[in-house]
Design a protein around this nucleic acid. Sequence first.
DNA 1: ATAGTTTTTTAGTCTTCCCTAAAAAAATAT
DNA 2: ATATTTTTTTAGGGAAGACTAAAAAACTAT
Lengths: 217, 217
Amino acid sequence: MVTQSEENYLKAIYHLVKQGSSVVSTNAIAKKIHTKASSVTDMLKKLADKELVDYKKYQGVCLTKKGKIIAANVIRKHRLWEVFLVEKLKFSWDEVHDIAEQLEHIKSEKLINEIDAFLEFPSHDPHGDPIPDRHGNIVKNNSVNLLEIKIGDEGVLAHVKDSSDIFLKYLNKNNLALGYKIKVIDIEPFDSSIKIEVKAKQIVISKNVAKNLFINI
Amino acid sequence: MVTQSEENYLKAIYHLVKQGSSVVSTNAIAKKIHTKASSVTDMLKKLADKELVDYKKYQGVCLTKKGKIIAANVIRKHRLWEVFLVEKLKFSWDEVHDIAEQLEHIKSEKLINEIDAFLEFPSHDPHGDPIPDRHGNIVKNNSVNLLEIKIGDEGVLAHVKDSSDIFLKYLNKNNLALGYKIKVIDIEPFDSSIKIEVKAKQIVISKNVAKNLFINI
DNA sequence: ATAGTTTTTTAGTCTTCCCTAAAAAAATAT
DNA sequence: ATATTTTTTTAGGGAAGACTAAAAAACTAT
Ligand SMILES: [Mn+2]
Ligand SMILES: [Mn+2]
Ligand SMILES: [Mn+2]
Ligand SMILES: [Mn+2]
C-alpha cells in the first residue's frame, strides 16, 4: 500500500524530474511540498525500501519504473478530476486545484476509469496539461513558451504552467483563456515584457507572466 | 479541523444513537468501526475536548449539537457520492459503499453542493437511505420492516438496512430491487421465514433477510 | 451481600509523518 | 589548498492513531 503522503512525494519528484535534471535534490523536494529537508530524507529512505525511488545518500533521487507509474497515476487522477469539476460541475479553472489535491488520492481503478469515460476521454486538463493514460503514458506538449517567440508570431493559448488561483485569476481579469488566439505585437528589450493582442485588444504582460504561458503555433 | 478518523467516530456514534438508546457504549463503537475499546476511549477523550461529544467515564457517549452536524454532513456526502456513482457512472448499488467511505472525507462545501445540484437534489441514496440537507436535517423514513407486516399486505421496497455487497448481491440474485412491489404470501411460524411475491414470482426469504428490508405501504 | 463476569479505562508501545538542532558531507570562494 | 557556506543526513522527539496487557469499575447471579 502506498500512503497519501508517499503519493505526494512521488508526484513531487515526478514533476521536478520532468522540468529539470535527471536527478532531484532533497531541498528541491522540501521546497516543493512545503516540508523540511530532514523529513524528505526520512521519506526517501522509506520509498527506497519500497523500491519506488533510486536513492543514494547525497546523490539526489529519481523514480524507479514502479514509482513512475504510481506518480503518473496520481497525476492522471488529479487532472481527470479537474476536468470533471470544470466540465460537469461548472467550477472555474482557478478553483479546482486544491480539491483535486484531495481527490487524486481516492483509491479505485474502476472509479477513475469511469470518470474518464464519463468525460469522454479528455486529452488535457483545464490548464492545458496532458492527462496520462491508465498505463502512465503521457503525450508530450509541443506548445512553445511566449518568451521564445518573436514579434509578429501568433498562436493559440494551449497551456499555463502555473495553476495557482492567484495567477489564474490574473488571467481571467485580463481576458486570457485557453484556446484564445494570441499575437505578439512588441517585445520590450529592457524588461522582456511583451505586448500581445488577444480578442482584438492589446495588453502588456510581464516576463513573469509570459514565462507561464504556452501557445500552439 | 476534524480529522478523517474523528469523522468516522462521529459517524459511527450518529448511526448507533439513531438505531438504539440515547447513549452509546465504548464496545458498540469499537465493534462498529473494527477497532479496540481502548482506542475508542482514547478518541472519545479527544472528541470531548473538542466538544463534539458528551462523554463521562463509564457512562457512554452521545453527540453534541456540533458533533451531530458534522456527522450528518459526512453522511450527506457519503450518500450523495453513492447516488453519483450509481446514477452518473453506472455503478451497481453493491459497488459503491467502499468508494463512498473514501469520498465522504473530501473537504469542500462547494463541491458537495454542486454534486447535489448536478444530481438534481436526490432525496435518497441507492439503498433508500435519506440524504441530509446542508444543515444536517434529515427526513424520517416511514417505511416498515417486512417482519412487522401480515399476510396479504403489500408495498414497494423502499429501503435496505444492510448495504454490504454480499447482502446486495443476494438481492440482485433474487431479483429484488428498490421500487419493486412486494406482497407477503405466507409467514412460516417456525423460523419466521416469509414467502413473498415479486414481479409475479414467489420466493422465500429468511428472517435475517426480511429484517433488512423495508417497504412503503 | 458477595463472587464472578463483562465492560471500560489506564499504562505502556508501536508506526507514520512531521519537526529542531547538531553533525557530516559537498560545494564554493579565496 | 584551505576556509567558508550550503546541503544533506543523523539524532532525538512530538502528535495522532492504533495496539496489548493489566487495573478498575460496573454489571450479574446466586
Ligand atoms: Mn492542479
Ligand atoms: Mn491542472
Ligand atoms: Mn454506504
Ligand atoms: Mn447507502
